[in-house]
Design a protein around this nucleic acid. Sequence first.
DNA 1: AACCAACTGGGTACAGTGTTCGCAATATCT
DNA 2: AGATATTGCGAACACTGTACCCAGTTGGTT
Lengths: 234, 234
Amino acid sequence: MHPVIWMRPEHGTRGPKPTHSRRDVAVAGIRIADQAGIDAVSMRRIAAELGTGTTSLYRYVSKKDDVLELMGDEVMGELRGTVLTGEWRADLSTIARLLRETALRHPWLPSLASGRANLGPNSLWWSELSLSVFDGLDLSTDEMLANLDTLSAFVLGHVQAELGDRAAELRSGLTHEQWMERQGEYGPTIVNSGRYPRLTRVIVEAESPHRADRQDRRFAVGLDRVLDGLAVHL
Amino acid sequence: MHPVIWMRPEHGTRGPKPTHSRRDVAVAGIRIADQAGIDAVSMRRIAAELGTGTTSLYRYVSKKDDVLELMGDEVMGELRGTVLTGEWRADLSTIARLLRETALRHPWLPSLASGRANLGPNSLWWSELSLSVFDGLDLSTDEMLANLDTLSAFVLGHVQAELGDRAAELRSGLTHEQWMERQGEYGPTIVNSGRYPRLTRVIVEAESPHRADRQDRRFAVGLDRVLDGLAVHL
DNA sequence: AACCAACTGGGTACAGTGTTCGCAATATCT
DNA sequence: AGATATTGCGAACACTGTACCCAGTTGGTT
C-alpha cells in the first residue's frame, strides 16, 4: 500500500460500491474544522457527520493524516477560477492576498502545513498558476522557486501570527482589546522596572496595535516590503 | 485568579514549601518536547519526569497552556548574551538567524506561537533587544513594529515550512531524498497529464530542491530579499 | 449459473489524553 | 494554640486514534 494517498486508487473494482467518497470525508472534516476548530476533527465526529461507523472511514483513508491532506487539497479548490493579469507584481500580490484570505476563512489550514507539498490535484493546479506569474521574465526555475518561497514564507508566517491571535481569543474568551486592558495591569510592572525603555516607549506611543484593521494594514505593509525586496532582483 | 500566568505569584507564603518550581516544570517539558515531540508533552509525562503526582502540577500551573507559555519563555532565555553591532542590517540578520536556529533546536517552538506575545521575562528582554536595532534611525514606533513584524513573519513562515518537512520525515520515516524518489513514481502522472507544463519544467530542471543544504540557502536568499525590501524605506 | 476473491461496513478493545474534585498533611500567621 | 492557607495526589470522567475481527455484498471468471 503506497504511503501517499494520491497514488492509491480511490476504491477497487470488485465488492460493493462505497457509500461515500474521499471528497465526502474531506468536506465533512472541513465543516467540523471551520465550526469547532481543528482539534474537534476526530474520526468519530466525521463518521457521525456522515452517518456512518467510525472505523468505516478507514476504507477511504489509511490514517487520520490522510484526512488532513484531503482537507487541505479540497480547500485549495476554492481558488480555482483565479485569473491573473500578466504583470508580476500585481499577480504576486493577488496570490498572497488570496492565500491569506483562504487561510482566514479556514483558520486550521496553516496548522497542517506539512512542509512537504500537498500533491492533490487542486494544490498542483495552484502551484502551476503561481509559476505562471514568471512567464515572460526569463528566470531560471531556481529563481522562480526562490521568489515563491520567500513570498509564501511571509504569508504563512503572517497568517500564523494573525490566527494565533484569534485562537487565543477563542480559548481565553478575551478579545484583543480586552487582552490589551488586562495587559495594562501588567504594563506598569514592565514600565516601572526600568529595564525595558524601548518597549516602554512602544507601549506608550504605538498606535498600530490598537487599530481595528491592524492585521489588514500589517499584512499590506509587510507584503509591499517583501515585493520591494523581490523587485530589486527582477 | 488572573488568566495570565506572569501576573500570578509563583506560590503563596503560608503552607508547605513547594517541592518544585515553574522553571522545573518548563525544563521538564522542554526536555520531553525536544526528544519526543510536542505531542508527547503530557501532564502525566512531565509529572513522571519530575517524580511527582500528575495532578500536583496544577499547583504550579492552572492549565496545560500555561506550561507551553513557560516553555516558550524558558527557551527565549537561550538568546541572552546576544550582542549586536549597531548596524541595522547586520543586526536584523543576526536576529533572524538566531530565531531560526532556536526554532530548529526546539522544533516545537513555532507551533505554540499564540500570536499574542509571550510576556515572560526572557521574551520581554528579547523584544527590547530587537527594538534596540532601530536606535539611531529616527523611526516612529509604528515603523519599527512594521519592520520587525515583516521580518518575523518571514522567519516564522520559513521555519514552519522547514520544520514541517522534518516532522514529515519523522512521521513517515522517509527522508527528503527518499520522499523525492517516491514522488518520482508520481511525477510521470503529473508530467504525462500535460496539464502542468511549468510544474513539469520545475520537476525536470530545478536543482535547489535536491541540494543537501537547500534549507540554509533558501533561508539566506529569502532573508536577503526581505532585508532589501526593508532597506528601500530606511 | 455457480463460485471465489475482493471489497465494504462496523463493533470491540486498548492505551492514552486534560482536568475537576475531594481529602490528608503541613507550614505560617494571629 | 488555633485558624487559615497551601501543597501533594489518587480517583474518576469523557474524550482520542486505530488494530483486529467478522459478516454481508458485489464483480469477474469459469
